[in-house]
Each structure stands twice: as C-alpha cells, then as structure tokens.
Simulated assay, not measured.
Amino acid sequence: MPTLTHYNSPCPEAITSQILQLVVDNLTDISQVGLGPSNLLYNVYQYVIGYEVHLHLAALEGGAVELIVATDEDDPALVSGFLLYLPVKDDPEACGVAYMAVHARHRRQGIARGMLRQMRARYPQAELSCSVGKVGWFEALGFRVLGARGPQILMSTRDHSSDGLMATQDLAPIFASTEVRQIHTYLLQRHGKRAMIDAEKQRDRHLDQMTAKARTFIQQRLH
C-alpha cells in the first residue's frame, strides 16, 4: 500500500516537481476543459494548469490550500498520486477538490480512494466538479449529484453546497502572461493562423458538447 502524507506547508522540491509532471501528463483527465493532445492548444493548457497548480503549492503555508501525496511504499521518493484541495472559509467542515491525479502505473490500487478518504476525515463535506463520465465513480465513494456547473457536474458528500467561501485561482493573468503568449506565438509560427483558429473552434465545440451533456444528465437525474 502507498504511504499518504498530508501537507499544509510547502513540500520538498522533489515532491513538487513530480506533482507538476503528473499534472502535465494527465491534463486531459484533470482539466475542466478536457482537451486532448490532438488539439493545438493542448500545450497552452498544459502550461496554464501546471502554473495554477504551482501557485496552489506555493500557497500551502497560508492555510488556503492543503495537499495529500501518495508515495511508493518501496521507494518513498517516488510520487504515485496527489490530491490538492481547498478548505472553505467560514466552514471548518468543508473543502473543495481542486486537482487529483494518480500515476498511470499505480492506478486501480485504491490510491485515489485512500487520498479522498483521508481528506474527508479532515473535512466531512467535500465538494468537487467532474465530467459526466466520472459521476458513477464518485457516487460509489459517497458523493452526491447537486447540479451542473458549465461542462462539469457538481458533487458533494452532502445534499447541499457549503455556504462558506472557497478561494479560487484567477486564470486570466496566466493566460495573459508572457509565457503563454510565447507558446501561442510558437504554435502560430509552426502551424499557421488557420490551424490555430480551427483549434479554438474545436475547443469551443468540445466545451459546448460537454455543457449540453452535463445539462441533459442533470435534467434526467434530478427532474
């Protein structure tokens, strides 16, 4: 069984770098946009989500973010999964899942289940949003469907959302950063303007489809 370690202060650099690599490797699965590698904007979202997680990890000391890391029992330096979550202000029993990923080689070993269980021992009311396809898995862990939030399904371990405030990261400054502009310029030079416009349209269609799917799911489930 993996070892689970809770962090509410900055973790070692070796742990941080492996977490960021897990984010990059699992972008399609953990991003709300859900873009696949075939979309030319994939590298942009890899950077943006990676940087968002980097900012969360840097904020561990302030109490607005907490982290659970799963490490290999035989090799404690090897990260097999992580769960990043945000305590809710004014509600000491509630938190929201920001990001979770498990290394491909360590899946189906109960790692995600164990991390979520440890989080819920600290915060009985846990909330998250996920794609329609993951609802059944989270329901099996005790989460309930509350409604749709854009392309995602909002779920909670209770039958209502917390009334407290949850800190969220504003991604607009990251998308407007010099680094993202440089990535976009490189992609534009390599693939051309028409291909980049097509990638944006493909992303928008994908989000519209996910949003419609989430809305239909909620209508069938809750009405």
Score class of each variant (00 low, 15 high):
1 M>F: 04
11 C>K: 04
12 P>G: 05
13 E>I: 10
14 A>D: 12
15 I>W: 01
16 T>P: 01
18 Q>T: 08
23 V>C: 07
26 N>R: 05
26 N>P: 05
29 D>Q: 14
45 Y>K: 00
50 G>Y: 04
51 Y>P: 01
52 E>V: 11
55 L>R: 14
57 L>E: 09
58 A>M: 09
65 V>W: 01
68 I>Y: 07
77 A>V: 10
85 Y>N: 01
88 V>G: 01
88 V>F: 03
91 D>S: 13
92 P>W: 03
96 G>Y: 07
99 Y>E: 13
104 A>F: 06
106 H>I: 04
108 R>D: 10
114 G>N: 14
116 L>W: 04
117 R>V: 07
118 Q>E: 14
119 M>N: 04
119 M>V: 10
119 M>G: 02
125 Q>R: 15
126 A>Q: 10
128 L>H: 02
129 S>K: 10
131 S>I: 02
136 G>E: 14
137 W>F: 15
139 E>R: 15
141 L>H: 13
143 F>V: 08
145 V>I: 13
148 A>E: 04
157 T>D: 08
159 D>M: 09
167 A>D: 10
173 P>D: 03
173 P>V: 13
175 F>L: 11
177 S>N: 10
180 V>W: 06
182 Q>D: 10
182 Q>N: 11
183 I>D: 11
184 H>P: 00
185 T>W: 06
185 T>G: 07
194 R>E: 15
200 E>N: 09
206 H>V: 03
206 H>L: 10
207 L>K: 09
212 A>D: 12
217 F>K: 05
218 I>F: 12
223 H>E: 13
223 H>L: 02
